[in-house]
Structure formats: structure tokens, C-alpha cells
């Protein structure tokens, strides 16, 4: 088989797997913004994009599993904020260094477990549970921060995010990519990943087949929380502070990236690999529109429109009979 054929097959595979359009959008955005702004393709800006995109990607990776399972996690941004605040407090109190990442991850996992337990055993829609905890976590974080931005002083920890093991490529981006690879593996090559698809595709079938559905629901929220916590700690390391607005843009951005990437909100369709593309679309939009001087408010309108458009295009409307 020639290389040409191979590439042709790959392109065909992309299109038939439903990823053709998102990938085309990414390429289109790159072309569009590089024409619209000279600074867009500069190394400096690409480094900036990779930094911004990494935070979003890390925050989305866990939440994608929840969406795949047919539920939703609205508390991702709030966990990032709360864990960010807790991490800074912890670093200042105990001089944790790199260990702060683990603290962030575990704190997030606990918060996610709370979400999952209430959702799975209280039998309350995940939308309601996480809307509630969104408020609880945000309030708790602001209580800790007392309305101020908390600083920390640990060069080692800071380097975790903004150091560059690979020149021009911040460590946070490297971590995000490695985590993404791990999550793609988790999604397609493990029992956990398969159960997410099955619960999202047919929960009643999963139950009669003896799959411990509730336990896996809790696991999914724990993963989502853990990844959000991990993101919170890294975001703090990247910014040098934990401020009250940390993670605020993640509520829309995570869901937007997951959905734009092609994971269906109805559950059972999509996958973590797609979320990378979705994150790129959102991050490129944010960055490019900024560079072109589009104001913040118009940007919000564009992004909202993109999310709705993505769902409109991606779902097979013919197969949906009832929408509530």
C-alpha cells in the first residue's frame, strides 16, 4: 500500500467517524485567523494558545466521561476554583511543592465523589445535583479566598506549569497531552470506558446484564472531579495566584468543547479523543477573536452560537422523536 493510499484511508476514516467536520473547522479557523491577524501564527502566540488550551483540555477530559454516560457535570469550573484555593492554602501552610498536584487531584476526586453519590444513590438528575454543588463549591471557595486573590511562593510548583521541558512548549501543555493519551486509552481500551458507553447507550440494558451501574456512575463523577482538581492545581501554578474568577469561564467552555468535539449529550456516542478537537476549536476562537480585537461580549455571543450550531449539525435529528 502506498503512502498516498494510507493518507487517503486516514482521511476517509476521519470523515466516516464523524470527526471530519470538527477537524475541518480547526483547520479553517487556523487559516482564517492567520489571515486576520499577523500575530496569530507567531511562536509567542502559539505558546500562549497551548497554555490556555491545556487548562481547558484537562478540565474537559474527566467531564467527557460523564457526558458519554448520558449525564452532565456543571460543577467542573467550581471544583477548579475551590481546589485552586485549597491548593494555595495548602502550599502556603505545608510547603508541598509538586505534591500539591496530588492534593488537588484528591480533593477534586472527593468533591466529585460527593456529586456522584448524591446523583447515583439520591436518584436526582445530574443536572440538578451539579448545579447545586456548583453554587456550594463556589461559595466555599470565596469563603476561603475572602474576595482576594491568594498568592503562593513555590518556584518548583510554578515550574510544573510554566516551565518548558520542551522549548516553547509549556509543561502544562505537555501534561495535558499525556493525560489526554491516558484518557483515550481509558475510554477505548478499558472496562471502565466501555461501561460508560453502555450506561449512556442503554442504562436499563446495563442493569439487567448485571453491570454495577450506580458504582460506575460514581466513578465517572469521581474522575471528572479528580481531573477538575488536577486542573485547578495546575491552573494556580500557571497563574501564580488563586483569584475569585478562577475557572469561571469553564462552565460554558467545557461543555462547549465536549459537544463541539462530537460527544453527544444524549449519551453513548463520541469519545475522549474528540474532546481534543473541541478544545482546539474553543481555544482558537478565544485567542483569535482576542487578537482581532473583538470585544468580550461579542465573543460570548459567538461562542454560544457555535455550541448550538455544533449540536444542530452533529445530531441525527431524524432519529430523535422526543425532546424535552
Amino acid at each position: 500500500m502506498t503512502t498516498g493510499r494510507k493518507i487517503g484511508d486516514m482521511v476517509l476514516g476521519l470523515i466516516t467517524s464523524g470527526m471530519g467536520l470538527p477537524v475541518a473547522v480547526v483547520l479553517g479557523l487556523i487559516v482564517f485567523f492567520s489571515i486576520g491577524s499577523d500575530a496569530f501564527l507567531s511562536l509567542r502566540n502559539l505558546t500562549a494558545i497551548s497554555g490556555q488550551a491545556s487548562t481547558l483540555l484537562l478540565a474537559c477530559l474527566g467531564a467527557t466521561f460523564v457526558v458519554l454516560m448520558g449525564s452532565i457535570d456543571l460543577s467542573v469550573g467550581a471544583i477548579v476554583l475551590l481546589v485552586g484555593a485549597v491548593t494555595v492554602k495548602a502550599i502556603n501552610a505545608f510547603d508541598l511543592g509538586v505534591g500539591a498536584l496530588l492534593v488537588g487531584l484528591l480533593t477534586g476526586m472527593m468533591l466529585g465523589a460527593g456529586n456522584g453519590l448524591i446523583f447515583a444513590f439520591g436518584r436526582i438528575p445530574s443536572f440538578v445535583v451539579t448545579l447545586g454543588t456548583l453554587s456550594v463549591f463556589t461559595g466555599a471557595a470565596w469563603e476561603i479566598l475572602q474576595g482576594r486573590a491568594l498568592r503562593f511562593d513555590s518556584l518548583l510548583f510554578e515550574n510544573m506549569a510554566i516551565g518548558q521541558l520542551i522549548p516553547r512548549f509549556p509543561n502544562i501543555a505537555l501534561i495535558a497531552i499525556i493525560t489526554w493519551v491516558l484518557m483515550v486509552f481509558l475510554c477505548f481500551k478499558t472496562r471502565f470506558g466501555r461501561y460508560m458507553f453502555i450506561i449512556g447507550g442503554g442504562e436499563a440494558v446495563a442493569t439487567t446484564a448485571g453491570i454495577p451501574v450506580r458504582r460506575y456512575k460514581v466513578y465517572a463523577f469521581m474522575l471528572s472531579g479528580a481531573m477538575a482538581g488536577f486542573t485547578g492545581a495546575l491552573a494556580v501554578a500557571r497563574l501564580g495566584t488563586a483569584g475569585p474568577t478562577l475557572g469561571q469561564d469553564l462552565l460554558l467552555n467545557t461543555l462547549a468543547a465536549i459537544v463541539v468535539g462530537g460527544t453527544s449529550l444524549s449519551g453513548g456516542i463520541g469519545g475522549v479523543h474528540r474532546t481534543l478537537i473541541g478544545v482546539l476549536i474553543i481555544a482558537l476562537l478565544d485567542n483569535g477573536l482576542n487578537l482581532m480585537g473583538v470585544n468580550q461580549y461579542s465573543q460570548m455571543m459567538v461562542k454560544g452560537g457555535v455550541v448550538i450550531a455544533a449540536v444542530l449539525i452533529s445530531q441525527e435529528r431524524g432519529k430523535i422523536s422526543v425532546m424535552k
Partner: peptide, 24 residues
Amino acid sequence: LEGLISRFSAAWNVSLAGGGDLFA
């Protein structure tokens, strides 16, 4: 409703059961 997920493949539906140690 409860027996199989028709939009998944035959393979996915065959392996679909708890105690997943058979395929994992």
C-alpha cells in the same frame, strides 16, 4: 428496552454483562 442496545454492534452486546473479567 432491556435486552440489548440496538445501536451498538453485536460484539459490544455480546460482551455486555457484569463481572467483566471475561473480556478485561
